[in-house]
Amino acid sequence: MKRQLPLMLVFLLGAFMIIQYFVPAQASLDAYEFILDWMIIIGIFAMALGIWSLMRVSWHKIKRRSHDWQYAALTLAGLFIMVLFGFEPIGGGLKSYLWLQFYEFVMVPVLATIFSLLAFFMASAAYRAFRARSLLAAVLLGSAMVLMFRVLPLGPLSDPINELAGWILVVPNLAAKRAILIGVGLGMVATSLKVILGIERSYLGRD
């Protein structure tokens, strides 16, 4: 019962959505939109569980005075302050000054900086590929070089490199992406089918 009912729900809703795709009638579109709204609303309750987990883990660290527990306290402080700012009666909500400042001067700089770390990580990853000394790594690196050098002023070499780069993007790139996409499409269909038929049910846990 504990697993049967969810499996039945999965099957019924899954089958409904497959059929829905083939039915263009208004009732079908309405049902589809309703279900999308459902998923969004259910999802926000999951967010509450997530925040609960974050608070729980942080609190355990603080309570046990485990290593670096002070930082867990900082996380909680950040969380509570931001929630207060975002709660209209107290902090003024999503358009309030404090909320926007926290967004602009805490979230944005950190976000942009972490993203920009990628520039360094790409360099070290390229070096890693260089050291791998395998034929496939060399192929990968060679094609990466062509694409990287296309923007450099290399005099007479510029034109052929640009042509080659453009060709790689249009020809082999297209072939590989298409092969992957066909495989992915089939794999998705197979996995969806396994889920709907209840063959794949590890996500449901145990009784």
């Binding site: 899954g14 409904f16 959505m17 795709y21 996995t191 969806s192 089918l193």
Partner: peptide, 13 residues
């Protein structure tokens, strides 16, 4: 089950 069933069917076709 609601979420997984729905999206599995959605994705399939």
């Amino acid at each position: 089950a609601v979420i997984i069933g729905t999206t599995a069917g959605f994705n399939l076709s």
